[in-house]
Simulated scan of single mutants.
Amino acid sequence: METIADLDERVSHCRACPRLVRWREETARTKRRSYADWDYWGRPVPGFGPADARMLIVGLAPAAHGANRTGRMFTGDRSGDFLYAALHSVGLASQPTSTHQGDGLELSGVRITAPVHCAPPANKPTPAERDACRSWLSEELRLLRPTLRSVVVLGAFGWQATLPVLAAAGWTVPSPRPPFAHAAHVSLHGPTPLDLFGCYHVSQQNTFTGRLTPAMLSDVLRTAAKTAGL
């Protein structure tokens, strides 16, 4: 029987989308000057967190010089700094920073993933690339199903990508599908009770402008954690 670790290993070797393969590998070769001494990951980035997570956070895609460099979701860029500080503030992460694999960070009861596992040009995967990656999220949800009780989706892209996967996995998604909004909350029925939450993405476009504040993010995470029994 496949495990989360098996899935993560398979994800990290995917080459299904030629444009994303070229971009992630070119970025890893050319690097950013400030990271010239780094050996970039340059591969699809698997999910991060325990295999028995009760709560799942769904982002968008790895950042070219963040997770594409470090090999761990939301690690090594300002979006990740914002997210992990909030997770630490509500007791779901062992430390408030995430700089590299092996830095000691551990998550408690929560796992982080994305609907697209490769860094896309301009942070914009195409609908076809999103759909090509859908099977990975579907499989991840299947493996987490025995323990999963809440899902937090960061941003409209992730929301739109996650809803059909949840429906295919057996949860009843309302029709018409609920629109994305910050602090949106939808209770789903299916193989297990599942609460779905929306949250603005932790992109610099949102955090630098104050559209998403640390308090706003912490409130959503705290509510989702409580719903999940964490």
Rank of each mutant, 00 (worst) to 15 (best):
A86F: 05
V152H: 08
D131A: 14
F157K: 08
A184M: 13
L83H: 02
S135P: 01
A161M: 09
A128L: 10
Y84D: 00
R177W: 10
R145Q: 13
L141H: 02
A168W: 12
K124T: 02
V90P: 05
T172H: 14
W136I: 10
P115Q: 05
L148P: 01
L144M: 05
L83G: 00
K124Q: 13
G158H: 01
A181P: 11
S175C: 15
G80P: 07
S98K: 00
L141R: 00
A161E: 07
A119L: 10
G80Q: 10
V116A: 13
G104E: 04
V186C: 00
P178C: 08
E106P: 02
H182K: 15
E139S: 04
W171S: 07
H100P: 01
V151R: 05
P176D: 11
P146G: 07
V173K: 07
G170M: 12
S135Q: 03
P146K: 09
P176L: 02
A119G: 08
V153I: 12
V110D: 15
S79C: 06
T162D: 04
W159Y: 05
A169L: 04
A119T: 13
G158Y: 01
V165S: 06
S150L: 01
A132F: 08
S94Q: 07
Q101G: 08
A167R: 15
H117L: 11
A168S: 13
R111E: 09
A85K: 06
A85M: 02
P120Q: 01
C133H: 10
G170K: 04
L137H: 01
D81Y: 06
A181R: 15
R134C: 06
C133S: 09
S175G: 14
V152D: 05
